[in-house]
Each structure stands twice: as C-alpha cells, then as structure tokens.
Amino acid sequence: MAGVEAGYFVRALELRSGAELRIKQCDTGDVGCVVWDAALVLAKYLETSSFYRDGLHTFTGKSVVELGSGTGLVGLMASVLGAHVTVTDLEDMQELLNINISDNKHLVTGSIDAKVLKWGESVKDLPPDPDYILVADCIYYEQSLEPLLRTMKELAGKNTCIICCYEERTMGNNPEIEIRFFKLLQTDFEIEEIPLDKHDEEYKSEDIHILQIKRK
C-alpha cells in the first residue's frame, strides 16, 4: 500500500476524556482502508460504563487480539483503555495500521503492535488464549467465513471473550452469508447478543449488532 500518506483523509473519534483518536483512511484501496460504522460502534461500546469495575476498565492489563483490523480503530481504542493489543490484518494493510498506531501512540495506556495474519493460517505468533478477541464488520465475504472461524477457534481459549460487531445488510447475498456464518459459529461457540440499550448512547444503530461469543 505504497503512498498511504499521499492519499488519505482523517476520521476523528472523540473519547470520553475529550481527546481524539485520529484515524487515517485511504481514499483508494481495499475495504480495510475505511473506518466502517460497525468499527465505530464497537470502539465506543468498549468505552461504556459496562466495562468499568471499581473505577478500573476491564481491559486494563488484559491481552487482546483484533482480527481483520483494517485501520486499527478498535484495537487502538482497547489499547487506550489499558489493554495489551495485537492488531492483525493482511500484509498490504500493515503500513496503514502502523501509521495509525504511530499517530495515536500518545493516547495508549497499554500497548499495541501490528502483525500479519491471514485467516485460516497459523496463529503461533499471536498471544495464546487472549483475554479478548475483537472482530468488527468481518461477515461479508462467503469464502472467508470458514477461515475466519478456524482462526477464532484456534486462537480462543476456554476463558477468551470474543466481541463481534457487524452491520446487518440486506443487499445481494449478504443475508445468506450471515445465516451461514451463524450456523457454522454455533458448532463450537455460544453466542449472546448485547442489547441495544447497552451500546454507546450516540454510536448505535438497530442495524448494527454486538455479540459476545465464547467457546463451548
């Protein structure tokens, strides 16, 4: 993805502290180059009071892996909240991920780095049995469903909490893809949907769902 710096625009997301995550997006390129609505919804959900216990954020000190990170927004939010995060995507997304990590490192209270991961391939270079796996808007391409689920199954330990956020789409074959994904998912995982009233007050939509998933 040569030339990211030459062809980008910035999406700013205000934090509760008043600071801003400033995420660079490419004006050309793959779908991963854009901050999608589901990523915004998930990032802001992580900031909600649901994750605080005795004034401390649940993610503080925890290990987190994000799959299909794209611009890195969700993983960056987790690192701002105190988690030790590995954001992952294909080789051609690494430049953009590292630019966004560098641009926002002054807000990070945990840690964050980027690694190459192709779904369905070995996860040996990732933290084993992370506390959390984050997945935003990755249910849209039929050929990727089984590789994504293989990666989730291999990476998740019995205590790993997977938080998945996706936008429900009705165009083309998207409904069939979603049905197939959840059918496959239920083979090895238990699924609980987070009620809409638990989402961020501003960043929520009836078309965007947040799921909490655990190994059976």
Rank of each mutant, 00 (worst) to 15 (best):
A2T: 04
G3Y: 00
E5T: 00
G7Q: 06
Y8D: 03
V10R: 08
V10N: 05
L13S: 12
L15V: 06
L15E: 05
R16T: 09
R16P: 08
E20N: 13
K24Q: 12
V31S: 15
V31T: 14
G32F: 02
C33V: 07
C33I: 00
A38N: 07
A38E: 03
L42M: 08
A43G: 10
Y45P: 08
S49W: 09
F51K: 02
R53F: 12
G55F: 07
L56S: 14
T58W: 13
F59I: 07
T60H: 14
L67T: 06
S69Y: 05
S69C: 06
L73S: 02
V74R: 10
G75H: 10
A78R: 08
S79Q: 07
G82H: 10
G82Q: 12
H84N: 15
D92Y: 11
E95K: 02
L96M: 04
I99T: 04
S102P: 01
N104C: 12
K105P: 04
V108A: 03
I112Y: 09
A114S: 13
A114I: 06
K115A: 11
V116G: 03
V123I: 11
K124H: 13
K124T: 15
P127G: 12
P128I: 02
Y132D: 03
I133R: 09
L134N: 08
V135Y: 03
Q143F: 09
L145S: 00
L148R: 03
L149Q: 08
L155E: 00
L155Y: 04
A156W: 01
G157V: 04
N159F: 09
I162F: 06
I162V: 10
I162P: 00
Y166E: 09
R169E: 10
G172Q: 14
N173H: 14
I179L: 12
I179A: 14
L184S: 12
L185R: 01
Q186Y: 13
I191W: 08
E192H: 12
E193T: 15
P195A: 05
K198P: 02
E201F: 01
I208W: 06
Q212R: 15
Q212P: 02
R215W: 11
R215I: 11
K216Q: 10
